[in-house]
Amino acid sequence: MKNNLTSNEAEEAAKGWFMAHKWVLLRRISQITILGLFLITPWFGIYWSDVWSGDELDENDAPIWIVKGNLASSLTLDVLPLTDPYVLLQSWVAGHLLETSILTGAIIVLVFYLLVGGRVYCSWVCPINMVTDVAASWREKLKITGGMQFSRATRYWILGISLVVAYVTGTIAWELINPVSMVYRGIIFGMGLAWGMVIAIFLFDLFISKRAWCSHLCPVGAFYSLLGNLSMLRIRATNRDQCDDCLDCLRICPEPQVIKPALKGAKKNIGPVILSPNCTNCGQCIDVCTKDVFNFGSRFNNKVKS
């Protein structure tokens, strides 16, 4: 029994505030640091060559940016190219021949997310995640329920349709309206009306439909979840026999349907690893659980304890 404490308070009492927010803090640090790397040169005038090359900067040295570009494609320290494979896929479908240089960048990103889990992009990189996380917690605090319901498959339909539209119109169609890149590009290159998009998504998730954007509609997340089918890094319900059925993890998880098989599957002979590619590896279940049921681990050794 939890007396009158809310689950968050119980959690804090059990582990202390910091440990009860460990992963969310790390994710915010990751999201803000990655954004910061893009901004450190244009906002603060800090160049790699200034700081690290031994000799003074002279006229002949081209100043080297820390990270140049945005999430669609970037160049780190003038050597490491990274490209969003979904944008590149649309470009190819739209009829543009891909060059080797850009393919390299996309392959590096693909391999990375294949290892750590596709939707790590969503919870550790994407700026919209911060907006929708806040909307979800406000929705909870304000006890707003009901509203529109979308199938969780909608995002895959939108992903498919975005590629069809790219093919038919010969444009990178989704990038014309993609809030993720719009906001990211906006912060780095100038916002325009993109703040309106941030507010719209916030209000939509808060009042109209629970976790609508990230967990039901966004085709970028859908694309990255396809990569998650093979990812090595997974969350495991290792101590699932400790579960006291408080439901906190299901309440806080943006994709609660992924937890149940791993948490409650012991009797059905299902292993403790959360294998669903829709799991974003956000770690909120780890933070919230007073019984320390969950932890990060690999997808291997998924045997049911006898």
């Binding site: 570009g69 945005n70 669609a72 494609s73 470009s91 739209a94 009829g95 543009h96 850009i102 990038e175």
Partner: peptide, 15 residues
């Protein structure tokens, strides 16, 4: 029309 298929809006040219 070809530019719309090719440009991925990374802003490296701007930089």
């Amino acid at each position: 029309t070809e530019f719309q298929a090719a440009c991925i809006r990374c802003g490296l040219c701007v930089r």
